[in-house]
Amino acid sequence: MWAARKMGILYTGFAGTSPHFGDQAFSPQGLWSFERTSPLEGSWQCLNGSTDGWFTSQPRPYQGQADSGHGYGFFLGGISSPRRGPRYAPSLTSWPVGNSTRDQRKTGVFVMYDMPNRKITDLANFGPSGRGAPNNAGIVYVPNWGDRGILVAVGGSQDRREGNDGLATFQTVRIYDVDTQRWYEQQSTGDIPEPRKDFCMAGSPSNSRTHEILVYAGWAGQLGPSAVPYDSAYVLTLPGFYWAKADYSPAHPRHGLSCNAVGGSQILTIGGVDTTQDGNDSYAAGFTTRDPFLQGLAIFDLGTLAWSSAYRAERSLQPAAPKFKEYYNAQ
């Protein structure tokens, strides 16, 4: 989803495919909005007749990441879906007939949607180092720097020739300046996460004029006991580009989850697939165990670099974690 916070509107429908299992329900291609009309009610609206024609003329992308801020929605990475087979929604725009449908998919998707003006900028195949945007990477919008903020992108998979399922190093942090529409790369230090994909990522400012970003869970493409170490949480602090790892013993790895900033330096994690489960049906095996988090929800505190026992409503921004204070004081 994209959120237009000042307008009180959510947008969806711009990415995704039908499920791999179940009744393979799908929604027609396009863009929808949900606007809250009262604290307890809201209404849906299909915007296909009033917004940019890109949403219905171009194949709908998937396996990318979305975020929003400053009146813009962003979608980075992933590939565009061909109209092929029951795995994909039949309403998706088809690709031209050729020798290989898979080879014709557009990769490195990167689009920016101007919400007030309902215009989209298709920046496909633009990306750091000129290689295009990675798949299954993490992105987060950070308003602190630049006239219109920046996007921070890490991880994901891009080139299998690099080994380890083509997973990108977290030592390189990719920065997109929304105002100049230019990519930059910055080397990071500290406890750098192991390469992974399908992790979750969200950030929040501190009251110390820094911005901390959580990277949690994910996997390297292998199911089973070897995935347990990916039950780990790392936090990147900006502007220092310094990583710190949360201190806890891994036990319950997961991938395909979401992270959401919910105020007061708190990050809410939701759901995920149990990466330790390996069975005949690789899509469904991860759903056979009970989530150790109550209702599949957990709160990570960026101020303490630790999991919290409860969510605190209306909590103010917290100071940067002591480990980050030590780092900045030493510079």
Rank of each mutant, 00 (worst) to 15 (best):
Q181L: 06
I192D: 01
T189A: 15
S206Q: 07
G203K: 11
T210P: 00
Y184S: 14
Y184G: 13
S208Y: 04
A202P: 03
V178G: 02
D177G: 03
T180L: 15
N207C: 09
D177W: 10
E194P: 08
E185Y: 09
G190V: 00
Q181G: 00
Y184L: 13
D191Q: 11
D179C: 12
D179E: 14
Q186L: 05
Q181H: 12
S204Y: 07
P193A: 00
N207I: 13
S208T: 11
W183E: 09
R196M: 04
D198T: 10
Y184K: 15
P193Y: 04
D198W: 11
I192C: 00
T210W: 05
S204L: 04
G203I: 03
K197H: 11
A202I: 04
P195I: 05
Y184P: 03
D198N: 13
Q181D: 09
Q186G: 01
G190H: 04
S188K: 10
E194C: 04
P205L: 06
P195L: 03
Q187P: 10
D191Y: 07
V178A: 05
R182A: 05
V178F: 00
C200Q: 09
K197W: 11
V178W: 01
D191H: 13
W183I: 04
T210H: 09
I192P: 00
S188Q: 06
D179G: 08
G190T: 01
P195F: 05
V178H: 02
E194R: 15
W183L: 02
G203V: 03
V178L: 02
S204E: 08
T210K: 11
Q181F: 03
E194K: 14
F199H: 10
K197P: 00
G190R: 11
F199C: 00
S206D: 10
C200V: 04
S208H: 13
R196A: 00
V178K: 03
T189Q: 13
T210N: 07
I192M: 06
P193N: 04
Q186E: 12
G190D: 03
G203P: 05
R196F: 02
T180R: 15
A202G: 01
T210L: 05
V178N: 00
